[in-house]
């Protein structure tokens, strides 16, 4: 027996099976991301008042790079436009144009992931250093003339590791000055470098999940979102090339598949549209 409405819309609802399926799936995704957003907001509002890192558990502000985040937002908005234009091209029976738009969509997805990994690298090599006199410094460090890199987990430094390696001094490229709202002060310089004696350091840690709840929840949500982007890109890439054979055998079902893929892609992009202001701006 053939399963009904696999690609023909059911007359009373106007929906085919896959569209009902994807919306049920997206409903479960809304609950997943909704829970994580709630966790972020609850941690944010219950954090002590003050300016991080001076107050250890105050909520850090202005740590994420807004121009890069905005550029990534533009990349995702572009990818949503191209995925819907790919679907529209198929509706207008133009397969060549569909493939061009789909390739642009997948390229945008990988551009997003590339930029995000650049941001991750920056955070994993960015340190907060607490000194004996109670001061806290933040910036990128240089140990024995080398900058730590995130893809090398053995390259993470602590006071104990510095002592083990008999390092006596490290260089810190200090972050530019910010006001209490995290905004860059006018004319703030990024390249002010200081040398710090290891004996003066009480503790140090890179901007990793273990350092502060902000980083824990930031990495969790953005990495989960990144996995969704990667999954979506792989599926859309499959539709653009090996899966495109269906266009000849069953064009109606193929168009439906692209629509379902496009709905997932829009959801992933919509999550970012909420994530960007919450994490980067507020």
């Amino acid at each position: 027996m053939e399963i009904p409405y696999t690609y023909k819309a059911r007359p009373d609802t106007g929906l085919y099976n896959a569209k009902v399926g994807i919306w049920l799936f997206l409903a479960s995704e809304i609950m997943l991301f909704g829970a994580l957003f709630s966790a972020y907001i609850l941690l944010r509002v219950s954090a002590p008042v003050g300016f991080w890192p001076d107050v250890a558990l105050a909520w850090p502000r202005g740590l994420l790079n807004i121009p890069i985040g905005t550029f990534n937002t533009a990349v995702l908005i572009t990818s949503s436009v191209t995925v819907v234009l790919a679907w529209a091209a198929l509706k207008m029976n133009n397969f060549a144009r569909f493939r061009v738009y789909m390739v642009i969509t997948v390229l945008c997805a990988f551009a997003f992931l590339g930029i995000k990994s650049f941001e991750y690298n920056d955070k994993f090599s960015h340190y907060v250093i607490r000194l004996q006199d109670g001061k806290a410094l933040t910036g990128h460090i240089e140990v024995d003339g080398k900058h730590p890199r995130f893809w090398n987990f053995s390259d993470q430094w602590s006071v104990a590791k510095l002592a083990d390696k008999k390092v006596t001094k490290i260089k810190v490229e200090m972050d530019p000055e910010r006001d209490v709202n995290g905004h860059l002060k006018k004319g703030a310089s990024h390249h002010h470098e200081v040398e710090v004696a290891v004996s003066d350091i009480v503790s140090m840690g890179s901007y990793t999940p273990a350092t502060h709840p902000f980083f824990a929840v930031y990495f969790l949500i953005t990495a989960l979102h990144g996995l969704h982007v990667l999954g979506g890109a792989l599926v859309l890439g499959y539709f653009a090339f090996p899966g495109a054979k269906m266009w000849k055998s069953n064009p109606e079902q193929f168009i439906n598949r692209i629509e379902v893929g496009g709905l997932f892609w829009h959801f992933v992009d919509l999550v970012w549209i909420f994530l960007f202001p919450v994490v980067y701006l507020l």
Binding site: N181, L263, I273
Partner: peptide
Amino acid sequence: SLKAFHIVFVAASVILMAFLSGWSFLA
């Protein structure tokens, strides 16, 4: 449909960009 969801997405993007504009102006 994808068409309707795209309209929702564009509307959300417009709101985000208006918010970013206001936020930057306050900054």
